[in-house]
Write a protein that binds this DNA or RNA. Structure first.
Lengths: 351, 351
DNA sequence: CTGAAAGCGCTTACAG
DNA sequence: CTGAAAGCGCTTACAG
């Protein structure tokens, strides 16, 4: 980087205003008041020179001098781009950015994080992490070592999503309650044998959804639940035919992609959804899917999740805020959306 | 910000490794080579301590010491959130983030910029701008004074979108050519009287689209063009009826919102699009609109625009890259998408 | 081959 | 009321 010709510093401001550099700093930081006893006239003179020169403090220097930056880091454990993860992250980021505007802070997105052992690394040799006052951590799975290092160092951070790690502050989604409610609806509709299609059980949110589904099934006696770990590509006519032959009348899908695939395959088999098979899903549909039916589903408030996470971090960073312990970990409710893919089974099983 | 207990510095690394702090810095920056004649054994020892302690350089200090940060600022003149601007910015940001991953740089989003006189300000008292090595500027209209100040200061930046300001590097979209081609298609289809619905003429991209439409009309003799400055709310049955009564058989809309509104109003009037009225648009449809027809339209490559803009900034920042002047300002082609809202007029006007 | 030192621009006690 | 100075953690000539 070449030296910048036009760069203005506090020293220059001080010379122009005929004061010492320290006074410029005090004025700049609103500390030219009774305590420091800087006369109004001096303050005004300095302010005028600042306005004239368009001076802006060097944020790196401020930070180095130990002052908060109003910069919040945003780190994503899963690379946000190649994948369809965009539908996932976009609403989250929208919420984060909106809240950042509210808080008046800037967002440092750690897009540079190198991948090692298949995971992105937050703490690498050249990490710009310490430029931020604190950090938001996103991702289904997080590195326990890194969380520990951050905690040990006292670096303020908030996990977006519930974390099973002692002392980690988070804002999460109440998937247990949400999945239980939605599954309960399926049971209430008269289904006695459900299948749950889920992803690999990695990460708290996936475990929570599973627990919620189980709890929903337990809301009535004698409900059977088949669980299958399948990503959407593994959802075939054979699978669905098998499930139905076994007595399954309703499918609970963890992801929108799975639900979409179930619907496509079922429709391809000539089945009617929901008459022949009810399908509910624990997530919002992908944005593309105009062909897809209006699924009965859970609506996780992702935008709010983003906003609330940043708000929590803001409170943690605010020394004046005495945050009660229980507010360091909160869960947001998921709404159940009616949709059109849940109905009573055509041939109710006898319980 | 409380002092961080666990914070490791180069001095501590130096003590542990039994070398001076300067040597740690040299090792860290890959300058422990023949030129500095630091023995391999010393380097290895330092490297090991670094690995053990999980040391990470303080980016603020590095920056202050004059070293590049691999941080690129992203500033948006229009607030990105309250509005429907999200559809606009999302693909752009997707491209920027993808390229940032490629380049290994982080992105500092200036979400804090205060609004003054209805515009967001990049250069305000507390701007974190100088933390970045360079900056990407987004927005339909930009502040000329700020562009000037940035140039005067030699702060590297790239405008996303064509700019009519001397010396400002940009990557833009070739709206002139794109709009001319699409409008030419309308003319080729037999329309002799078109209406162009556009926004207030502020900003180069809006001017360019207008010029392109005019050029497209000039591709055949005797074509009439009515232009109307209307945002979508001002598109009423009266307006369309008036246009059609005047002989207009095709509408070119600047924005997707306008096109959607034209289609809704026309349909409400019992008209068939495109039989009774052809509608083409110079932008991509909003993501929500599953009800809307498949518009004949221009597809501005926004994701690529984002990526190419950052790539250009990366080249400007790279001292080894001798960027030819003409590559400092480039335009990307817009694709024409066939769609189903352009047809020959039912009653071709006689020319 | 290695260490001592200046300097980046700022904030904040501290001494007049 | 104001200035001189230490210190934040780093990079990079420079002197041994």
């Amino acid at each position: 980087m070449a030296a910048r010709a036009g760069k203005v510093t506090q020293r220059q401001i001080a010379e122009l205003a005929g004061v010492s550099q320290a006074v410029v700093s005090l004025v700049l930081n609103g500390k030219a008041n009774d305590a420091t006893r800087i006369p109004d006239r001096t303050r005004e003179r300095v302010e005028q020179v600042i306005a004239e020169t368009g001076y802006t403090a060097n944020a790196a220097a401020r930070r180095l001098a130990g002052v908060g930056n109003k910069i919040v880091g945003v780190f994503t454990y899963e690379p946000a781009f190649p994948t369809g993860a965009q539908d996932f992250y976009t609403p989250l980021l929208a919420g984060i950015e909106a809240e950042a505007e509210q808080l008046g802070c800037d967002l440092l997105m750690f897009t540079s994080a190198p991948v090692r052992d298949g995971r992105r690394r937050l703490l690498h040799g050249n990490s710009r992490l310490r430029l931020a006052d604190g950090c938001l951590l996103l991702g289904v799975r997080m590195d326990g070592d890194e969380l520990g290092a951050l905690q040990a160092e006292g670096f303020p951070f908030v996990a977006v999503g519930r974390r099973d790690v002692e002392g980690v502050p988070y804002v999460g989604l109440d998937y247990v309650a949400g999945a239980a409610t939605l599954t309960g609806r399926v049971v209430e509709a008269g289904h006695a044998h459900l299948a749950y299609l889920h992803l690999e059980q990695a990460g708290e949110s996936i475990v929570d959804r599973m627990r919620g589904v189980e709890r929903g099934c337990a809301s009535a006696p004698g409900i059977r639940l088949d669980t299958r770990e399948v990503d959407e590509h593994a959802i075939t006519a054979d699978l669905l035919t098998g499930l139905r032959a076994g007595g399954v009348t309703a499918v609970v899908a963890e992801t929108a992609a799975q639900a979409a695939r179930v619907w496509e395959v079922a429709t391809g088999l000539g089945w009617d959804v929901p008459r022949d098979l009810s399908v509910v899903v624990l997530a919002d549909p992908p944005r593309a899917g105009s062909r897809l039916p209006d699924f009965t589903r859970l609506r996780p408030p992702r935008t709010r999740l983003g906003a609330e996470s940043l708000r929590l971090l803001g409170r943690i960073l605010d020394p004046a805020d005495e945050l009660p312990d229980r507010e360091r970990r909160t869960l947001l409710d998921c709404e159940v959306v009616g949709g059109r893919t849940l109905a009573a089974p055509a041939h109710p099983a006898q319980r």
